[in-house]
Amino acid sequence: MIIIITSLVITMLAGAIAACALRDLLSAAIASCLVSLAAAILFYFLQAPDVAMAEASIGAALVTAILVIAIRRTERQE
């Protein structure tokens, strides 16, 4: 159990670092989607299914979609 959680946390942090390091904004947006997704699963492990659901549907899906649309309307490279 703790191994799963630890690997999830590592994934999440890696996503965040990728979002920081990547020059391509679209990739950074996808990396932040990864962060949200891992966080949603962590919420589930923390016995918060409501929040997990909200994070998955809003944080992972909608935020990423809005970000991608915004990047499409502006420019892709940092």
Partner: peptide, 29 residues
């Protein structure tokens, strides 16, 4: 482990806010 995850996210986000200049990158942070 959860604290590490949470604070890791907060600090990485703050680092993005501190060092990056691109507006969309800031919003991601």
């Amino acid at each position: 482990i959860f604290y590490i995850g949470a604070f890791g996210l907060i600090f990485i986000g703050l680092y993005i806010l501190l060092t990056r200049k691109n507006l969309i990158k800031l919003i991601i942070g």
